[in-house]
Simulated scan of single mutants.
Amino acid sequence: METSTASTYAFVEDLRAEGVGTVLDRVLGTYGCDTLTVAAAYHRARDVTPHGPARVTLRRDGTHFVPPADLFGGLRLTPPVQAGAEEEPLREVRRRTAERGAALHGWTVFLHNTTLGLAHPDVTQENCFGDRAAPADLCPAHPEVRAYAVALARSVARLGVDAVVAESLHHGTFGHGYHHERSFVPLGPLEDFLLGLCFCPHCVGHAEAAGVDAGAARAEAARAAGLVLDGGDPRPWELPETVAAYVRTRTDTVTSLAATVAEAVAAEGSRLVFLDLTGAIKGYADGRPTGPLAVDEAWRTGVDPAAISTVVPGYAVLAYAQDPERIAADLAAYRSALADGCSLRAVLRPGVPDTDSAAHLAAKTAAATAPGRADAVDFYHYGLVPYPVLDRIPVALKER
């Protein structure tokens, strides 16, 4: 059963630079959290790191542990490894958090991996035009990707973490399939969504097994997206029924993968927390999500919160919004949709673009964790915001 009520996300690099003890003193002592959530496997990024050893940090795909031979032996997909992984930094963090009676969560990025996608393009998502143009997005329907996800999950669980926080355990989107993306075509929401759909043989086969005409869906997606590529204006948001039927089959793919990964994690003595990124898709850029609540648009990445909550013990959502009322509505809707017994966590950003003061963060924390909403609150991210912003966390936690 989940006992963690508040955590701060962090990178292994933060712990190395400042010292495990120093970070734990801040997170568990000064800030008042009872959990540290550390990236065990991460993706490529360029981050502004205000109190890091470098003020701008370049990150690479990879794990902070050496992949166990018994789990990855015979698999074609093996994760790249971060520098210093042989030192097993997370085992040291596990020991130090246990000494303080705190929980440790292993934050794991699963199917967003540019290095693997470039090396093995056949396991990435294939768009309606037949392009393998999203190397960061491994397809959750591909059998080898699913085997990779299970092995990765078991590896992180073996580190002794109390929970494996699963990021990107679903389909990817067109707007985040690579880095330094460019488009001088005025893609609207419809065209952007259609270009992100996967029509690889495995996704097509799954849809056809469910009685859906995948060929017709692919042709209609290509036709609709092609109109703007040929110089037309973006079309109003309305999925053609052939495409909508195809899209509905994707939720079974993601739910069954989540179930398999959750079982693998449980077999290693840990528990899975499924991280739903819909809140970031809607509010990442400016913290001003509009339109339907996040729970009602999770289907865009193949996520069915209600179904997934029956196969995982924990669920987390990114509450990336400035307005406490929006956060309250989003969390209440998720709580209503999730199955009884599935814990719910809300991830908040304590600084820009979502939050401008300690009082503001406190109001959002209270909105997220009121009765009938989230069971726990997490703060993103220790190494990415200045210390004065992190100092808002203890004020916020006092208002729960």
Rank of each mutant, 00 (worst) to 15 (best):
Glu220Met: 12
Pro189Arg: 11
Gly29Trp: 07
Thr253Glu: 13
Ser309Tyr: 10
Ala221Phe: 10
Phe72Gln: 02
Trp107Thr: 05
Gln125Tyr: 03
Phe379Ala: 02
Val48Gly: 14
Leu272Met: 05
Gly62Arg: 02
Ala280Pro: 00
Glu99Cys: 13
Val204Leu: 12
Arg392Trp: 14
Phe129Asn: 01
Phe110Pro: 00
Thr97Asp: 07
Arg271Ala: 15
Ala166Arg: 06
Leu36Trp: 05
Glu86Cys: 04
Pro305Ser: 06
His43Cys: 13
Gly172Ala: 06
Leu272Glu: 06
Ala264Phe: 03
Ala328Arg: 15
Tyr31Gln: 09
His105Trp: 14
Ser7His: 13
His360Glu: 06
Arg235Met: 02
Glu18Ser: 13
Ala374Gly: 14
Leu397Gln: 03
Val347Pro: 01
Arg250Phe: 10
Gly226Phe: 05
Phe65Ile: 11
Ser343Cys: 11
Ala306Pro: 13
Leu227Cys: 07
Leu338Ser: 12
Ala10Arg: 00
Gly231Trp: 01
Ala119Tyr: 08
Arg44His: 07
Ala245Lys: 10
Arg60Trp: 03
Arg248Ile: 05
Ala136Ile: 01
Arg91Glu: 09
Pro350Arg: 08
Asp296Cys: 07
Arg335Ala: 08
Gly52Met: 01
Ala245Tyr: 07
Ala362Asp: 07
Glu263Asp: 15
Thr310Ala: 15
Asn113Phe: 03
Leu344Phe: 12
Arg158Tyr: 08
Val165Ile: 02
Tyr380Lys: 04
His112Thr: 01
Ser183Ala: 11
Ala321Gln: 09
Val254Lys: 04
Phe379Val: 03
Gly226Val: 07
Gln322Ala: 11
Pro67Tyr: 08
Asp162Glu: 13
Asp14Lys: 02
Ser7Asp: 03
Leu390Met: 11
Gly291Gln: 00
Phe65His: 14
Arg60His: 05
Ala54Tyr: 10
Glu18Ile: 09
Asp323Gly: 07
Asp330Gln: 05
Tyr42Thr: 14
Ala134Asp: 10
Ala370Arg: 13
Glu399Ala: 15
Phe11Ile: 00
Arg55Tyr: 10
Thr255Trp: 04
Arg60Ser: 06
Pro89Ala: 03
Ala136Thr: 04
Pro289Phe: 08
